[in-house]
Design a protein around this nucleic acid. Structure first.
Length: 831
RNA sequence: GCCGGGGUGGCGGAAUGGCAGACGCUACGGACUUAAAAUCCGUUGGGCUUUUGAGCUCGUGAGGGUUCGAGUCCCUCUCCCGGCACCA
C-alpha cells in the first residue's frame, strides 16, 4: 500500500518521533494503532483544510449548528461530545451528499465562573479565558470533529462584542431597551441580579443560594413586545414537540378581557384582567396586590392604613421562594374605606389586598369569583366572603366549579342559560359597548432583565449625561472595551466593579460634549449567544455583523441541536433578537433556526448526574487515550436513545472498540469485486437505507446496530468484496472518520474517503427474495417456514400446513379462516 | 394541579398492527495459549417437560376493549422522568 504522494512528506514530518511500535504498520495485518491513525488524519484534515467551508455561494448549503460551550476551567466532559458528534455525523454526511456545509464552533466565554476564578487568583479573566479556550479547542480537535476552525468566534473578543453592543444600541434606539426601577431577584452570595429564568426553585441557578427580592434600576429588554410572534411563529419551524410546548408554556399566552371597576365615591378605577369575563356577575369582591399603586394614591381615604402597611412590609420580606413554596394558606387584609362597583350587578363589593395577586402579571388586581376560581374560593372561605354561583353544574359551597365546557350560566342577568364560551363573547361585547372593558391577551413572559453588576461581560455602550439623559456611544467608538483593573470584586452595594474605575466611568457626552458617566452594568451571558450563529456566517467582517450576502446564503440554520436547559432561555432570547434584526432588515429570515433537536444527558456509571462532587465524572481525554477518538465517538452515538439521558458504561466503550477492531480486521477478508455479491446484496442495500435514514432521525444507535449486523454477516461469510467494503466504510465514516479513512487508503481506494459520494440504496434490492415467516394458529406462533416472496399463497399454505407443530395444533379442529401476509405471517384460525 | 415524555431481559436498548427482546454489554461454555489477557465460536427472558430431536407454557407497569393477530390502536388506572406552577 503506497500512501498517496502528497501524504508521504507529511508522514515523515509528523510521525518520525513516534516509536516504532506506534508507527502505522505497512502490512494489512498490523494491529489497529488508533493513536497513530487518528493523529495522522487530524493533521491531514487540518493541513489540507478539508473541512473549510467554501465561499462558493452557488452550491447548495447546509448549516449545522451545535451550542458553543462555555470554556470552563474543568475542560470538556463526556457529555459535550454527544451533540457535537451527532451533528458532525450529519455534517459529514451532507458534505458527501454534495452540500457546502457550515459547521462552526466557538466560545461563549463571558461569565461568572471565570470572573470568580479571577477574583480568587488575581489573574485577569481574559487570560483565564484564553487558557481555557486553548484547552477546549485542543480537546475538541482530538475528537476529530469537522468544524471549520477558521470561523471560530469568541464572545469576549472585542471584534465580536462590538456587534453585541451594536445590536444593543439598535434595541435602545427602537425603544426596546429601557431602564426601570424594579424588584429583581438578588443573589446575596453572587451579589448579582438574576433574570427570572436564572432562579430555580427560589434559589440561584449558579450557586444554589436562596434568592431575595431587591429593588434595582435595571436595563430591560422588551421581549414581551415579541411574545405573540414568538408563539405564533413556532408554527413555521421544525422543532421537536417538547421544545415547542415548553416555549409556549413559558410565554404563557392567555386570552381574556380587561374590565374596569369603579372605586366608589372616587374618580379612580381598578382595571382587572380576567380569562373568565363570563363570571362577572359572580365577582363578589376584588383583590389587589400589596404593591398596587392605588393603595398610595388613595391612602387618605383608607381607614386602616397602618394595618395595610404592615401587610405590605410582610409581603416584601417574603422572598419569591416563600411566596411560591409556602403552603397555600391565603393571607390578606381588607382595604377599609374603599369599595368597588361590580359593573354587571352594580353591587358594591369590598376590596382586599393579598399577596396571592402578583403585581407583575396582568394589572396587579383581580375580580374575585369564588364560585368558579379555586384560589378565590379558598380566600373567600377563609375570610367569610360571599360565594355566588353563576355557572351551574357543580356545588360551589363544596368547591369552585371551574368547568368551562359543561356549565350553564345562572344568576347572571342577560347571560342566563348560555354556555360559557358564548357568555364570554356576549359579556365582552357588552362591556366594550359601554367602555367598561376590552378583549385582552396577556403573557406570563416578562421583560428580560439585561443588567449585571459584574466585570466580565460586555459593557453596555451608553453614557449618562445630566442634560441629555441616556446617550448611546457612537457606532464609530464601538466597541466599548473593559478597562484593565486589579480587582474584580463586586461591591456590597450591588454596584458593578466598573463603578469604581473612575477614569473609565468619567467621559464626555457624545451629544452635548459635557460631563457624562458610562453605564457600569454589563450584559448577561445570554447576550453574546443570542446572535453568534449570525457571526459564523461571516466571522471576520469588520464593517457589519455579517454581510447581507453571507446571511442570505446561510440562513436559516438548517439544524440546531442543543440542550433542553436552553429551551426557555437562550433559544427564546436568540429568536427574539433574530426577529428584531429581521424587522430592521438585517437578517433575511423571520426565524433563525429551521430545525431544533435536543440530546439527553450522559450520566455517571452510577446513574447519577455527572459531577465533581459525586466523583463520577468521566474525562474524554482518558477515553481517547485508552480507546481512541473513533471509539469514543462511536460509543457516544451507540450508547442509547440520543434524546434520552443514559448512564456511562466503561464496558460499553470496550464493546465499541471491539467493533472497530473487527472492522479493521475485515481488511484481511477483502476480495476483488466491483458489484455487491448476490449473497450480500439485499443486506447491503438494507443497511444503506437503514443507516441513511437513521442518521437523519437521530437514531444513531440503530444505525450502528445495523452496521454491526452487516459486519457480523461478513464474518460469517469470511469475506467481503471491494464494493461491499467501500459501502461499509462510507456508512461508518461519519461516526468513525479516522479509522475508515485509514482503511480506505490502505486498501488503495481512489482519493480520500471524505471526498466520496454518500452511497445510495435501490429500494427494489432491499427486499430479500426468500424470507422466513411465522406460522400462527389462532395468533400463536407454531412454526416458521421459508417461502419465496413470489410464491402464490397456495405454496405457502402447503408449507405451513405440513409443519409438524402446526399439524398438532390443527388436530381435531376446523379451519375457519386463513390470513396470509406475504413476507410477514401465515395465520390459521381454527375452531 | 396543568402540560409534555416514558414504563420491554441482569444492564443500555430494538421492533411500518404481523416470529417480542435486533445490536451491544454482562454472565456462562468451548477453541487458541505452558498460563493469562486479547481474539474467535457458541449459549444467555422466566417456568415446566424432555426419549437430548426438541416440545409446552407464561411474558412488554395493571385492568378492560378492538382485531385473524396488540409492546404498538382505544378506554380506565398506576408509577417514574422533565417543564410550568397562587399567572387571575
Amino acid at each position: 500500500m503506497v500512501p498517496r504522494k502528497s501524504f508521504v512528506s507529511k508522514e515523515r514530518e509528523g510521525f518520525f518521533f513516534l516509536s516504532a511500535q506506534d508507527r502505522i504498520g505497512g502490512s494489512r495485518m498490523a494491529r489497529y494503532n488508533f493513536r497513530a491513525v487518528e493523529k495522522k488524519w487530524q493533521e491531514i484534515w487540518e493541513n489540507e483544510q478539508i473541512f473549510r467551508t467554501s465561499s462558493d455561494f452557488s452550491k447548495p448549503k447546509y448549516y449545522a449548528l451545535v451550542e458553543f460551550p462555555y470554556p470552563s476551567g474543568e475542560g470538556l466532559h463526556v457529555g459535550h461530545p454527544r451533540p457535537y458528534t451527532a451533528l458532525d455525523v450529519l455534517a459529514r454526511k451532507r458534505r458527501m451528499e454534495g452540500f457546502n456545509v457550515l459547521f462552526p464552533m466557538g466560545w461563549d466565554a463571558f461569565g461568572l465562573p471565570t470572573e470568580n476564578f479571577a477574583i480568587q487568583t488575581k489573574i485577569h479573566p481574559a487570560v483565564i479565558t484564553e487558557r481555557n479556550i486553548n484547552r477546549f479547542r485542543q480537546q475538541l480537535q482530538s475528537l476529530g470533529f469537522s468544524f471549520d476552525w477558521s470561523r471560530e468566534v469568541n464572545t469576549t473578543d472585542p471584534n465580536y462584542f462590538k456587534w453585541t453592543q451594536w445590536i444593543f444600541l439598535k434595541l435602545f434606539e427602537k425603544g426596546l431597551a429601557y431602564k426601570k426601577e424594579m424588584p429583581i431577584n438578588w443573589c446575596p452570595r453572587c451579589k448579582i441580579g438574576l433574570a427570572n429564568e436564572e432562579v430555580v426553585d427560589g434559589a440561584c441557578e449558579r450557586c444554589g443560594h436562596e434568592v431575595e427580592t431587591r429593588v434595582k434600576n435595571q436595563w430591560m429588554l422588551r421581549i414581551t413586545a415579541y411574545a405573540e410572534r414568538l408563539i405564533n411563529d413556532l408554527e413555521m419551524v421544525d422543532y421537536i414537540e417538547r421544545v415547542k410546548v415548553q416555549q409556549r408554556n413559558w410565554i404563557g399566552r392567555s386570552e381574556g378581557a380587561e374590565v374596569l371597576f369603579k372605586i366608589k365615591d372616587t374618580e379612580e378605577n381598578l382595571t382587572v384582567f380576567t380569562t373568565r369575563p363570563d363570571t362577572l356577575f359572580g365577582a363578589t369582591y376584588m383583590v389587589i396586590s400589596p404593591e398596587h399603586p392605588v393603595l398610595q394614591k388613595l391612602r387618605d381615604r383608607i381607614t386602616n392604613m397602618p394595618e395595610i402597611e404592615a401587610y405590605q412590609e410582610q409581603a416584601r420580606k417574603k422572598s419569591e421562594f416563600e411566596r411560591a413554596q409556602l403552603v397555600r394558606e391565603k393571607t390578606g387584609v381588607r382595604v377599609e374605606g374603599l369599595s368597588a362597583i361590580n359593573p354587571a350587578t352594580n353591587a358594591e363589593i369590598p376590596i382586599w389586598a393579598s399577596d396571592y395577586v402578583l403585581m407583575t402579571y396582568g394589572t396587579g388586581a383581580i375580580m374575585a369569583v369564588p364560585g368558579h376560581d379555586e384560589r378565590d374560593w379558598e380566600f373567600a372561605k377563609k375570610f367569610g366572603l360571599p360565594i355566588v354561583e353563576v355557572v351551574a353544574g357543580g356545588d360551589v359551597e363544596k368547591e369552585a366549579y371551574t368547568d368551562t365546557e359543561k356549565g350553564t350560566m345562572v344568576n347572571s342577568g342577560f347571560l342566563n342559560g348560555l354556555d360559557v364560551p358564548t357568555a364570554k363573547k356576549k359579556i365582552t361585547a357588552w362591556l366594550q359597548e359601554r367602555g367598561l372593558g376590552v378583549p385582552k391577551v396577556n403573557y406570563k413572559l416578562r421583560d428580560w432583565v439585561f443588567s449585571r453588576q459584574r466585570y466580565w461581560g460586555e459593557p453596555i455602550p451608553l453614557v449618562y449625561c445630566e442634560k441629555c439623559g441616556w446617550v448611546p456611544v457612537p457606532e464609530s467608538e464601538l466597541p466599548v472595551r473593559l478597562p484593565q483593573v486589579a480587582n474584580y470584586e463586586p461591591t456590597d452595594t450591588g454596584e458593578s466593579p466598573l463603578a469604581k474605575i473612575r477614569h473609565w466611568v468619567e467621559t464626555t457626552c457624545p451629544k452635548c460634549g459635557g460631563y457624562a458617566e458610562r453605564e457600569t452594568d454589563t450584559m448577561p451571558q445570554w447576550a453574546g449567544s443570542s446572535w453568534y450563529f449570525l457571526r459564523y456566517c461571516d466571522p471576520h467582517n469588520d464593517q457589519e455583523l455579517a454581510s447581507r450576502e453571507a446571511l442570505e446564503y446561510w440562513l436559516p440554520v438548517d439544524w440546531y441541536n442543543g440542550g433542553m436547559e436552553h429551551t426557555t432561555l437562550h433559544l427564546l432570547y436568540s429568536r427574539f433578537w433574530h426577529k428584531f434584526l429581521y424587522d430592521l432588515g438585517i437578517v433575511p429570515t423571520p426565524e433563525p433556526y429551521a430545525k431544533r433537536t435536543s440530546h439527553g444527558m450522559i450520566l455517571g456509571e452510577n446513574n447519577e448526574k455527572m459531577s465533581k462532587s459525586r466523583g463520577n465524572v468521566v474525562n474524554p481525554d482518558e477515553v481517547v487515550e485508552e480507546y481512541g477518538a473513533d471509539t469514543l465517538r462511536l460509543y457516544e452515538m451507540f450508547i442509547g436513545d440520543f434524546e434520552k439521558a443514559v448512564p456511562w458504561s466503561t464496558e460499553g466503550v470496550k464493546g465499541c472498540k471491539r467493533f472497530l477492531d473487527r472492522v479493521w480486521k475485515m481488511m484481511d477478508m477483502v476480495i476483488p469485486g466491483a458489484e455487491y455479491r448476490p449473497e450480500l446484496e439485499a443486506k447491503v442495500h438494507q443497511t444503506i437505507k437503514k443507516v441513511s435514514q437513521d442518521y437523519e432521525n437521530l437514531k444513531f444507535n440503530t444505525a450502528i446496530a445495523a452496521l454491526m449486523t452487516l459486519v457480523n454477516e461478513v464474518y460469517r461469510l469470511e469475506s467481503i468484496n471491494e464494493a461491499e467494503m467501500k459501502t461499509v466504510l462510507l456508512l461508518l465514516n461519519p461516526v468513525a472518520p479516522h479509522i475508515t479513512e485509514e482503511i480506505w487508503e490502505k486498501l488503495g481506494f481512489e482519493g480520500m474517503l471524505n471526498e466520496q459520494r454518500w452511497p445510495v440504496w435501490d429500494e427494489a434490492k432491499t427486499v430479500e427474495q426468500t424470507v422466513e415467516i411465522g406460522v400462527q394458529v389462532n395468533g400463536k406462533l407454531r412454526a416458521t417456514i421459508t417461502v419465496n416472496l413470489d410464491d402464490p399463497q397456495e405454496a405457502a399454505r402447503e408449507k405451513a400446513l405440513s409443519a409438524e407443530a402446526v399439524k398438532r395444533a390443527l388436530d381435531g379442529k376446523t379451519i375457519v379462516k386463513e390470513v396470509y401476509v406475504p413476507g410477514r405471517i401465515y395465520n390459521i384460525v381454527v375452531k
